[in-house]
Each structure stands twice: as C-alpha cells, then as structure tokens.
Design a protein around this nucleic acid. Sequence first.
DNA 1: GCGACAG
DNA 2: ATCTTGTCGC
Length: 235
Amino acid sequence: MHIDRIHTWDITYKEAMRLQSELSARIKLTRMKKIPKIVAGADIAYSKRLNLSFGVVALFEFPALEQINVYSAYQKTNMPYIPGLLSFREAPVLLSIFEQVEENIDLIMIDGQGIAHPRGLGLASHIGIFLETPTIGCAKSRLVGEHKDIDLIRGNKEPVNYKDKLCAYVVCTRDNVKPLYISPGHLIDFQGACEYVLKCSDGFRLPKPTRIADQLVAEYKKQIIGQINKVIYPP
DNA sequence: GCGACAG
DNA sequence: ATCTTGTCGC
Ligand SMILES: [Mg+2]
C-alpha cells in the first residue's frame, strides 16, 4: 500500500514532540461510510538482547474474521520506549510491513493509543496519517485521561476525558476482564471505533485482529531468533 | 521537584 | 515490552 513519508524518524525527542503537535491537526474523526471488507491487526515484539524489533500485520475478512494473509518484518530498534513517543519506536517497522501489503485494507486496529495521547497523536493516529487509512487505537492500559469505573459486562463503555475533552472510551470486550482503551486513530469516529472493536471481539479480551497479530509476532520473533542463533553458534 | 507513564 | 520458572485456577 501507499505510504506518505511525511518525515524521517532520526530526530530528537524535542522535534518528535513538535511533529506530534503539528500532525495531530491533520487527524480527521470522520464516520466510516462503508462497512470494511478487510480489517488488519498490527503488533510488535522485541528482542532486548539483539536490539531488534519484530512486526506483524495480519489481515482478516470482515465481518467473518477469517484470516486472509500475514505480513512481517524486523529491523534494529532505534529508539528507547518513552511514554508519549511510542510511535517513533514502533512505527518504522510497521510501515515497512504495510509497504509490502498488496490487498486494500479498509481498517487497521493497532496495539496502542489513537488520539488518547498528550499531544493527540498516539501510534494508531500516526500510522493512520502515513497510510491515509482508518485506524483504531486498542490499548490495554491508560496513557492519559480520566474516567469512571465501568461494570465489567461485555459491551459496556465509559467515556475517557483528557483536558475536558473526550479522547477515548473504556470498553469491556469480555465479562469480568480488564477493559480496553479504545480511541480513534484517523478517519473514523468514536462510535465507529467502539463498534468495530466489539464486532471483532470474539470471546477474548483483545479483538481478533490484534490478538492474532500478537500471537503471530511472538512466533515470528522466535523463528527469526532461531535462525540467528544457528548462524552465531554453529554446532 | 514529584508522580504518572501506550509498549 | 522483555526476562524467566514455577504456580494457581478455570
Ligand atoms: Mg504490542
């Protein structure tokens, strides 16, 4: 798929933060007009020892949620994890994977925040801007914002406000299980984000696209590290 | 200065 | 997120 290389990634933290503020003005929280045909999930794994980042993008038919295809790549990790700057650590490898994708992806679910971010540009939003494709941030914990406790009943949701503005919903995707922080990334609204996450939640905490991407990236990492060890420590 | 803090 | 062995519970 096409990628808008809006900026490079070898920049200072200060410049990274400035870019986030600048790019957040481009985010559009629009309604998705058509029902998606292909939904993708994306996730990352790391090897601390080898300083590598592994990424997987898994494609699913919607609403059947049948797996269509899987893409992957890995590269050197060039940024430490800094809360608020996650996209500068994870986006480069993810974009290199999306570049290989032949299918037309209608919606991407990403492990991390969308606009629920100190400067309104979490990983999902940043990816959405580069790909000009609808994205949803599906985070397992809170980065910013305040909300009431929610009853842990599947389908329940509670608004998350940051600086007196709605930024996400806490969504229960399964009874009696810790809820998710769902925020639009780009080209989708709050209602659409919650709706598609729930429609992709098939009895587990994480919606199928990110859950399977998470499992596949763990396997991919294991496989690549096995190859590397074979080269480094020949029998 | 202190505490919070996606993955 | 990683590293790392076992353990508890559905
Ligand atoms: Mg992840």
